[in-house]
Design a protein around this nucleic acid. Structure first.
Lengths: 134, 134
DNA sequence: AGTCTATCCGTACACTTGTAAGTATGTCAA
DNA sequence: TTGACATACTTACAAGTGTACGGATAGACT
């Protein structure tokens, strides 16, 4: 597997929307982006092209419009991005980031139980010795 | 407070070391970096200079050598960086990242309790904030 | 005193990134 | 059929980034 160049921040945002709304045209992504901020059509177009040329998406023409589809799963991109961040900003330690998220960003009450379950599950897995993951 | 330009990934790594080992010379940071990877002295020097010019550090000459000191607290940089990442990669949702960290990066057994305490504390705080029931 | 060495500062340079203008071309309404 | 759009593709360009060379200079060493 050839090493893909990493996505830039802006490209990531676009890639996320592509995962979110599935195969889409530039216009659809553009409209989605515009819900939260102003953006030029051509700029979004450029990002999609770059995302494709970096190997994270494919596209094909359907008549006159090009349809972009994500090629790499979110998981993969998230893993690489987060690993890198943790390496650089936390020296490779995961917990400080977890703490930061829990303490500094609002976690809603409804999510606390989910969190607790996660921790429980984690503990069971750990106890079962080197658990595998899918 | 004037908006500082964000630190780049590489600059972040250097800034972290600066927080970690406190006021330091280029040489000291360079040596620290070299523990984990090859790096050119002048490159580290450039990063420190840029970190300073972006307003995240100060420096003063002590005889022949320049001593760099962090000026912005880690918390601040971490908050801005993480907020941005969550916005772009998770559409502003915190939980998916928390889940990712817990599920995909090894959390050691010894840290699970710490995690559980965090969750408990979070819950207590939440209950106090929103009108209590009991 | 002269040479070596570490460090400073300035400069460079290709590559990436964010942002978009310009131009060509296909589509639909009048 | 012609003009107005929409969309594609090409090209641009300044700023940021990673990486480092080269000259100046102050201390250390011979």
């Amino acid at each position: 597997m050839v090493e893909k160049p990493a996505l830039s921040k802006s490209e990531m945002e676009i890639a996320r929307l592509l995962w979110e709304i599935g195969p889409a045209t530039v216009r659809e992504i553009h409209e989605e982006v515009c819900k939260s901020r102003q953006a030029d059509f051509a700029t979004i177009q450029t990002f999609l092209r770059r995302i494709e040329s970096k190997g994270y998406a494919t596209s094909k023409l359907k008549g006159r419009t090009r349809i972009y589809s994500a090629k790499t799963r979110p998981r993969t991109v998230i893993r690489e991005t987060v690993d890198d961040l943790i390496e650089r900003l936390f020296g490779g330690e995961t917990m400080p980031l977890v703490k930061h998220l829990i303490e500094e960003r609002g976690i809603e009450a409804s999510e606390i139980n989910e969190l607790r379950e996660l921790v429980d599950r984690l503990e069971r897995n750990n106890n079962q010795g080197a658990g595998n993951d899918s």
